[in-house]
């Protein structure tokens, strides 16, 4: 449980961090909730850690018009306890309160969770349902990528070498939208065996699913059925169709698919009941 030797830098500015991250072998460190354990087990051995978790430039929650802008370095607890997030993006508040335990939420960051793209992480379900946008920056460049393009595969995102997430952008929830995040917790790790995030209004429905497959996804087939029928059970029945389900000692593929359907139905019903 002792990592290999590495260099550590704590740059004072984002620009400085991006300069350092342009080096080969440099790896950004935010909350360290996934990277540090992997390093201690020697499953990860970055030569240089660039600590971006201390950058104030990446730590903010702002509402700008119809969008919420959340700095990538904002901790889970800061999101969870933010009145602005609670008022304007309750799905994020609810999802983030389900992450791990309070110790993890005090350290882990929204950008770190997204960049790690753990197939069982909670946040990505909400990002899919919210059609979140990720502002990515690297030395001499900036671009915005949507959630559906950002999550590529297990632990794999659209981030390029030297690139980090600077900001997560989510829509301000309109009046009349109900949301819910329903999660089946893996008892050892606290990760989601499956987690389903739902937004529903009289105009639309969005369903994001995590834990089932290699990456979180938007269940558009289930959304279509719900749109036409408003029947949670019918919509939930197809949420796992075509998914290449994960399987481990905590849940087989078929049980995971079953849970995805159950939790989708629960999330749809709860979100609908909160449409108000």
């Amino acid at each position: 449980m002792i990592s290999q030797q590495f260099e550590y830098s704590a740059p004072a500015t984002l620009q400085e961090a991006l300069d350092l991250l342009a080096n080969e072998g440099a790896k950004p460190l935010a909350g360290g909730m996934s990277l540090i354990p992997m390093m201690k087990l020697r499953l990860a051995a970055p030569e240089q850690l660039i600590d971006i978790g201390r950058l104030r430039e990446l730590n903010y929650i702002r509402r700008e018009g119809e969008q919420m802008h959340i700095g990538a370095g904002t901790t889970h607890w800061d999101v969870e306890s933010s009145p602005i997030v609670r008022a304007h993006c309750p799905l994020l508040s609810e999802t983030v309160s389900n992450i791990g335990d309070i110790q993890v939420r005090n350290r882990g960051t929204i950008g770190g969770s997204a960049a790690h793209a753990d197939p069982s992480a909670d946040y990505p379900a909400a990002f899919c349902a919210l059609e979140a946008q990720f502002k990515l920056v690297k030395k001499g460049g900036e671009r915005v990528v949507g959630a559906s393009d950002f999550f590529v595969d297990m632990l794999t995102t659209a981030l390029e070498s030297g690139e980090i997430i600077a900001e997560v952008i989510v829509p301000v929830e309109q009046r009349g939208t109900g949301v819910s995040y329903q999660k089946c917790v893996q008892p050892a790790s606290g990760f989601a065996i499956v987690g389903v995030a739902v937004r529903v209004s009289s105009e639309f429905v969005r369903i994001g699913v995590t834990g089932l497959g290699a990456k979180a996804y938007r269940a558009t087939n289930a959304e279509e059925i719900y749109t036409s029928t408003h029947d949670a059970a019918k919509a939930a029945a197809v949420v796992a169709d075509g998914a290449d389900s994960n399987s481990d000692i905590h849940a087989s593929a078929s049980y995971r698919k079953h849970l995805a359907r159950i939790y989708t139905q629960r999330a749809l019903k709860e979100a609908a009941s909160r449409m108000g």
Binding site: L41, D101, Q186, P187, A188, S189, D248, I249, H250
Partner: peptide
């Protein structure tokens, strides 16, 4: 031993 860490070996927590 595939439950070689607390990621997979589920010891009870107060919340459970």
């Amino acid at each position: 031993l595939i439950t070689g860490e607390f990621m997979d070996y589920a010891i009870p927590r107060a919340s459970m």
